[in-house]
Nucleic acid binder design. Structure first.
Length: 456
DNA sequence: GGAACTCGCCAC
DNA sequence: AAACGTGGCGAGTTCC
């Protein structure tokens, strides 16, 4: 594709997105206000519990009559690292001792669990519930979508940001998404492109093994078996846990250009709940079959993060030098081309120029092109909506997914049209997409909130 | 008193 | 040699 086509995509795109913005999403203001005061009570009581603790008293004393702000990372860092002399394991970007969730959890101080719970509730209240309330007009929010702010030529969203509403944390998801409703007598539906970025990367690098794995393999399972040295059994819950550890702690980071040292920490410390320092002992870590992860790894000759890191180093080499060696070759070629020209052009016709790190050069075109598939679909679905006079509306967009407010009588037809546009029509128009595209569809019952999605 | 920065955390 | 990409946003803090 060329630059004219890229320009047209964004021009049509911004028109479709502004229609989306104008449509808006209905929110339940009564729920938001009730939930807000419930959270206020919870925070008050947790704050009381925290400020009565020994930990807090000591913190207060150390500040010589200056007041304590329990929400200040600076003050907390000073107390933990300078007063209590805890050894710094993780630094912030400016070299201060980190006080993020992971770090505080590792300290094993029970009072800090209270503080973390308060912070989680504040995040839900201040960013999401109050954000919705601030931005609403007559019970509807109208998130703004931008196409001119992101260096990869993706979109961003604001006022409120509809692209970062909690999903993985069950409690936060439930509270926040219960605020979002379809119009009366309608239902919310979300259509996600399956593995969109991976499929687009396969279109760029044309790696046979990667395409084969996307279509009929299971790379997460395969790599989990190598990393944790076991034979995968889908009926064993602990095997499923290690599969998702591999997916989120190895496969995704590797595709973004991470390296084995971070992955080793990810897999064992963050996912396996094993200690970062010292030798692992029996009974440590998450459950694995009839024992714990440490028991299993020790049996296989791995008894610390250091030895595990060496193991991951070998697996990383096999991953890029053998399994996906064509992908690795493409990366080198793509990067060399950038060094030569000072820019590169995506399959969707966008030119990326300026000073970029190696990982940026690998990621930007793929991330952008993947989003452009979604944007193309948004434009075409909007056209169908207008042409066929749907009552159904497109109301949101999250990089590789769309959210619709569906009239139940139109549901079957809308699903057919959306599927056809997102999986078939796009490949007719953009023949450079060499890998089949597929979608996942989730739906909520009529008049139910966005917290209650289920598979269609 | 506002701009700009830092930190942390939510999404893909 | 370097070391996972893109954003928005709230609260705390510092600078001017």
């Amino acid at each position: 594709m060329n630059v004219e086509q890229a320009n047209k995509l964004f021009l049509d795109g911004i028109l479709a997105l502004s229609r989306m913005e104008q449509q808006g999403l209905r929110i339940d203001l009564d729920y938001i206000r009730a939930k807000n005061s419930e959270i206020n009570q919870q925070i008050q009581s947790l704050e009381r519990e925290f400020t009565n603790s020994k930990f807090y008293k000591e913190w207060e004393k150390s500040r010589n009559n200056k007041t304590v702000n329990i929400y200040s990372p600076v003050q907390l860092g000073e107390f933990i690292y300078h007063v209590k002399k805890v050894k710094i394991n993780k630094e912030t970007i400016t070299g201060q001792g980190s006080t993020d969730e992971e770090t505080l959890k590792q300290l094993g101080i029970p009072e800090l669990e209270i503080l973390l719970q308060i912070k989680k509730l504040k995040k839900i209240r201040d960013t999401y519930l109050e954000g919705f309330e601030t931005e609403q007009v007559d019970g509807y929010i109208h998130p703004v979508y931008n196409l001119h702010l992101v260096k990869t030529f993706r979109s961003s969203a604001s006022n409120p940001n509809f692209q970062n509403i909690p999903k993985r944390d069950k409690e936060a998801m439930d509270i926040c998404r219960k605020a979002i409703y379809p119009r009366p007598r309608h239902q919310l539906m979300e259509v996600d492109y399956k593995q969109l970025e991976v499929r687009i990367s396969a279109t760029y690098c044309n790696d046979k093994k990667l395409i084969e794995d996307i279509l009929e393999g299971d790379m997460h399972r395969d790599m989990a078996e190598k990393i944790f040295m076991f034979k995968y059994n889908p009926n064993e819950p602990s095997h499923k846990v290690l599969r998702s550890a591999t997916k989120n702690g190895f496969i995704f980071p590797q595709f973004y250009g991470d390296f084995y040292k971070n992955c080793a920490v990810n897999l064992t410390v963050n996912w396996g709940k094993l200690p970062r320092f010292g030798k692992w002992k029996k009974g440590m870590g998450i459950e694995f079959e009839k024992g714990n992860l440490a028991d299993h790894l020790i049996k296989n000759g791995i008894n610390s993060l250091d030895t595990f890191t060496e193991h991951i180093k070998e697996i990383e080499q096999e991953f890029w030098n053998i399994r996906y060696f064509r992908y690795a070759k493409w990366k080198e070629k793509w990067y060399a081309e950038y060094l030569q020209n000072g820019y590169f052009t995506s399959k969707t016709g966008f030119t990326y120029s300026g000073l970029m790190r190696k990982n940026d050069v690998m990621n930007y075109a793929i991330q952008g092109s993947a989003f452009h598939c979604l944007l193309w679909s948004v434009i075409e679905i909007t056209k169908a909506q207008v042409k066929e006079h749907w009552d159904t509306r497109l109301i949101g967009q999250i990089h590789d997914a769309i959210v619709l407010d569906v009239n139940p009588e139109e549901l079957d037809h809308v699903v057919d049209v959306v599927r056809c546009i997102m999986c078939n029509d796009i490949r007719q128009t953009w023949d450079w997409i060499s890998v089949p595209l597929d979608v996942d569809i989730e739906i909520c019952d009529v008049d139910h909130s966005w917290a209650e999605k289920h598979n269609l």
